[in-house]
Design a protein around this nucleic acid. Structure first.
Length: 420
DNA sequence: TCTGGGGTCCTAGGACCC
DNA sequence: TCTGGGGTCCTAGGACCC
């Protein structure tokens, strides 16, 4: 058995933890750059705010209904997520953190327990420790657990827990789930399946293997087995090292000048380098891309990217910035209104397994010590305190974040104050 | 005025090898 | 008339996830 535990409307719930006045009020959290709605409280959903709607299109509703609106506050959400996960893992021997607000709990060692009662206990505990409401779905496979979770939200709002404990209960969940709502079925496959007469997950479960194999490859076949109760998607109990790491942002305003772009590229590169060091790995390739805004029909469009090979795989910020600026020099063209750029590091390998170039002139052990010290200082004193000159200070390209709450749990200057 | 960011896995086809 | 068999690696593109 697996349990899928997810936090309800996670980003909205995080905002409510430190601002109880938001209870029972519609709340919306916006994407980076205050671009579009990415989290909605139940009240906001009821008002018809659709996931992914651009902010300027919901402005009227915001005013009319007094919707509380927030910019994304990732330091806050990330920290609360860590705390939720710590609470969850205390209940089971093994757990896979699936996303910032979801985890699969492995319940195979708990077969003679009342899992429904356990689910209720998990929910109660997270609520008490963190103030975050969660929903629990329990079933024999990960796909069914996802489905049971969805079913709990629909049919068991009061308890927030559902255990598909028998074939009858599993059938019930399958029959109540539209094909498009199955984990692993997106818009394309949903369309294909609909055309061919599959309406619910129950229909799909009884589909012929060969047909699914042909139309949906082995991915579809695995899904079929999962629906039939045979676990076919492995749990990743320890987070595997990432194979690509990407940092990219849309700018707060359009940018044309090289200097500002080079600072953005340097900063995104520094972010990638930090993530590399955190997972003890190095990258052998660096990819930089640059693009104008395709929504602006009046602007001439330009989109380019380039991948450079490093002589020696590295995670050193200064070394990676050197390559990134070389890449930018090649793809940059003056005279365009750029909207976005990004840096991706690829061909990632463990740092203790890198092959040095024959004529490598960099003192890598010394450089490693410097990076270690830099990370330590920045961690203690705030993210970007120590930086390389190329990163600049102005951040003219900075994201818009007009509705930002405080970093209550990760920044000493932004602690919650209470008036008594 | 204004439309997010960061990932994974699979397949097909081409180049190349013995 | 007739032109092997088996493999690897790489890339681009498509599908999906939160």
């Amino acid at each position: 058995m697996y349990a899928l535990v997810d936090c309800n409307n996670f980003y909205c719930s995080c905002e409510r933890v430190f601002n109880p006045k938001l209870e029972n009020r519609p709340v919306v959290v916006l994407s980076n750059n205050d671009g579009c709605a990415i989290a909605r409280s139940e009240e906001a959903k009821a008002l018809g705010i659709v996931m992914g709607t651009p902010e300027f299109m919901i402005r009227e509703q915001v005013l009319e209904h007094g919707i509380a609106i927030f910019s994304s506050n990732y330091p806050l959400y990330g920290d609360l997520s860590d705390r939720v996960m710590k609470t969850l893992v205390s209940f089971v021997p093994r757990m896979e953190i699936y996303s910032i607000d979801e985890a699969f709990l492995d319940m195979h060692d708990l077969y003679n327990q009342d899992l429904l009662a356990l689910g209720v206990e998990i929910r109660r505990t997270v609520r008490r420790h963190l103030g975050i409401p969660v929903t629990v779905g329990i079933a024999p496979t990960k796909t069914l657990a996802k489905m049971a979770n969805r079913y709990a939200k629909k049919k068991h709002r009061d308890t927030g827990v559902f255990w598909a404990a028998s074939d009858e209960l599993i059938d019930q969940v399958l029959a109540a789930t539209e094909v498009v709502d199955i984990w692993g079925i997106g818009a394309q496959y949903a369309k294909l399946l609909r055309i061919n007469g599959f309406k619910t997950a129950k229909d799909l479960r009884d589909a012929p293997d060969e047909w699914i194999r042909q139309k949906m490859s082995v991915v579809g076949l695995r899904l079929l087995h999962e629906l039939r109760g045979r676990p076919s998607i492995a749990c990743a109990f320890t987070a595997p090292a990432k194979k690509n790491i990407c940092t990219s942002r849309s700018f707060g305003k359009l940018i044309s000048d090289y200097k500002t772009l080079s600072e953005a590229v340097s900063n995104y590169t520094a972010a990638c380098a930090l993530k590399l060091r955190q997972q003890q790995s190095c990258a052998k390739e660096l990819h930089v891309f640059l693009q104008t805004n395709p929504h602006r029909v009046q602007d001439q469009q330009y989109m380019r990217s380039i991948t450079l090979q490093l002589e020696t795989a590295s995670s050193m910020t200064n070394e990676l910035i050197r390559y990134a600026l070389k890449a930018l020099d090649i793809i940059y063209q003056p005279g365009f209104n750029f909207m976005k750029c990004g840096v991706m590091v690829q061909d990632i390998k463990p740092e203790d397994a890198i092959q040095h170039a024959l004529f490598d002139s960099v003192d890598r052990s010394k450089n490693k010590t410097v990076m270690h010290a830099l990370d330590k200082v920045n961690k203690a004193l705030g993210k970007d305190l120590v930086r390389f000159a190329a990163q600049g200070f102005e951040k003219k390209y900075r994201l818009r974040a007009g509705y930002l709450s405080k970093r209550y749990t990760t920044n000493m200057n932004e602690l919650l104050t209470i008036k008594i």
